[in-house]
Amino acid sequence: MPLHPSQLASAAAAVSPSTAPPLVLVDLSRPARPNRARSGLTKTLRLLLRALVPAVLLVVWQGVCALHLVSPETLPSPADIIAAFAELIRTGELQSAIPASLGRALVGLALGATTGLILGLCAGLWRLGEELSDAALQMLRTIPFIAMIPLFIIWFGIGEQAKIALIFGATIFPVYLNTYAGVRGVDAKLVEAAQVFGLSPRLIAQRVIIPTALPSILVGLRYAAGVALLALVAAEQINARSGIGFILINANQNQRTDIIIAGIIVYALLGILIDLAMRVVERLALPWRPSLVPA
């Protein structure tokens, strides 16, 4: 709003030179810098710097082993571990173990995620579903799934059933919680607009709520995939007759530290593989997400 001239005059008079602090200018202009600062050269450099620490660690590890500072039974060298990998591949153990372990993880994950998704949708979409399932699931959620292993052995024995049941139980909750939160998080204004345009409750769920909640649901699925791997490792400690756990148990009995470490690395690689797969799924399912849409 423009000030009246008399107001301006009084405003000017208020800033008397004697009492007010002097006006100081701050220079915010950027110092001229060559464009090179954000070019590809520094990108490569940054990549090299990132690789530097792991590379140094590997060299130190190999050096410590070569100088016999630790016994090979405690910590075999990186070269020994590569040899162990070669041995596992030569005997065909690794080739049969990975499908066995991955199969367990995926069957358990598929069952758990489906159950979590259905329960989450029921609790998110219907008041009745929420009343029925939410309190019970929130209670069960507090049980660490590893604590269930002894009980599952009694219930399901030491075969495949117990392993898949453990992965199933562990993966329900991440999917349930994120689905429920995602459905509840859909803007009520969107639902209201859909009502105005005459959508039935079924179509509102199908066209508005579920697509909008999908990012959250997929976060739950991705988290569940990580948990599935964790549960797999725990489950394969129960008398595994196949899979990576079987390799680990055998190696443990034969004091083969190199093979144990190789097995652990395989678990880590499986984790990366599952995570990458989930990212691909997200990319395909969410073409409208801000990170993927050039605004």
Binding site: K189, L190, A193, V196, R207, P211, T212, W288
Partner: peptide, 23 residues
Amino acid sequence: RSVVFQEPRLVPAKRVWQNVLLG
């Protein structure tokens, strides 16, 4: 009858033409 609100209220997960055909 139909309504235009103060905010567009488009479903972000649906393409523009699908939003037009919301109902």
